Simulated assay, not measured.
Amino acid sequence: MDLPQPLVRGRLVSRYKRFFADVVLDDGSPLTAHCPNPGAMLGLNAPGLPVWLSKSDDPKRKLAHTLELVEVDGGMVGINTMHPNRLVAEALAADALPEVAGYSSHRREVKYGVGSRVDFLLEDPARAPCWLEVKNCQAAYNARLKPDHKVWLEVKNVHLMRTPGLAEFPDCVAARSLKHLRELEAMVAEGDRAIVLFVVQRGDCEAFKACHELDPAFARGLDQAADAGVEVLIYACDVAISGLKISHRIPWAR
């Protein structure tokens, strides 16, 4: 997935009110940028960190610039939570995710559960439907599907790394994500296939775990969902100024 070019570099002054970031560009110009990330951004919100911003020419936007990347620990980290679904859509179109390859149709934001929408519904005339919520998958589960079963896929963005090489989710209380897990469990109970896919917007992580310290309810919920048959997949990304790409699967340190 290409990022809007050219990106401009600066240093973070302050990230506040969830969706605002004050930045001083390398040429000394101060500006306020849109921060497309409702999470805590732990480890990525310290004043002075180098950041990269895109710029929109849309005259209707109140803030022309968008915070896209943060430089930390010697590498780039994507913080835009709008990107994981786009990255997964791109990977699905290229059949780059072996666990869910081969579906001819990929529908997004399909209603399911109680007032929720699953990130992707994968369909093919010769195969059972697959529902994908971006989070961890076990391809072996697919062999147990019946012709009328469905697969739900839910996508979650990950960028927290407190221990070198270990990605964590969430970075704050994630009640909505826990609700998604419960709904995925219900799909499995009905005989469907349900998948949660975690997209790690950084390339320096070798494993993943749920962050029990910051949200014990979600960490317990992920274990429970997996035990109930919800599949869990974690994929890391290659991140550069030019763009991002889902690259390889990493293990769940359960």
Rank of each mutant, 00 (worst) to 15 (best):
K209T: 05
D223A: 13
Q224M: 07
R202K: 12
E231I: 04
A194S: 13
A228N: 13
G229Y: 07
D238N: 13
K209G: 10
A219W: 01
R202Y: 02
V200R: 03
Q224H: 14
V200N: 10
R193L: 12
E213L: 10
A186Y: 09
G203C: 03
I241S: 09
I246N: 00
L197E: 04
R220D: 15
G191P: 11
G203R: 03
L214S: 14
K245L: 07
Y235K: 10
K209C: 12
A210F: 04
A210Y: 09
L244V: 07
S242G: 15
F198Y: 15
V196S: 07
F218K: 08
I246M: 08
A226Y: 12
A194T: 06
A217Q: 15
A219M: 02
I195C: 01
A210P: 06
G203M: 02
L222E: 12
D215W: 04
I246H: 00
A225N: 05
V188Y: 04
L233C: 03
F208D: 13
D192R: 02
E183I: 04
V230W: 00
S242F: 04
G229L: 10
D223R: 15
A186N: 08
V239R: 02
V200P: 00
E206Q: 15
V239W: 00
V239M: 04
R193G: 06
A210C: 11
Q201Y: 03
G203F: 01
V188H: 03
F198G: 14
D192W: 07
S247L: 03
A207K: 15
F198I: 05
D192T: 06
R249T: 01
L233P: 02
R202E: 04
L184Q: 06
A236H: 02
I241C: 08
Q201L: 13
D204R: 04
K245P: 01
S247F: 01
H212E: 14
L184G: 02
A225G: 07
F198N: 13
I234Y: 15
S242C: 09
A240L: 06
E190C: 12
A186K: 07
I246G: 00
A194R: 04
A189P: 12
H248A: 12
G203I: 00
G221R: 04
A226K: 14
E213W: 06
K245Y: 02
V232N: 07
V188F: 06
C237A: 07
Y235E: 09
A219E: 11
D238W: 00
G243N: 06
V196P: 00
I195K: 00
G221L: 11
A240H: 09
G221D: 10
K245G: 02
E231C: 05
F218E: 12
V230A: 02
V200L: 08
M187E: 15
S247K: 09
A189K: 13
E206D: 11
M187N: 10
A228S: 12
Y235V: 05
D204N: 09
I246D: 00
K245I: 08
D204V: 00
E213F: 10
I246L: 05
V232G: 03
L197R: 10
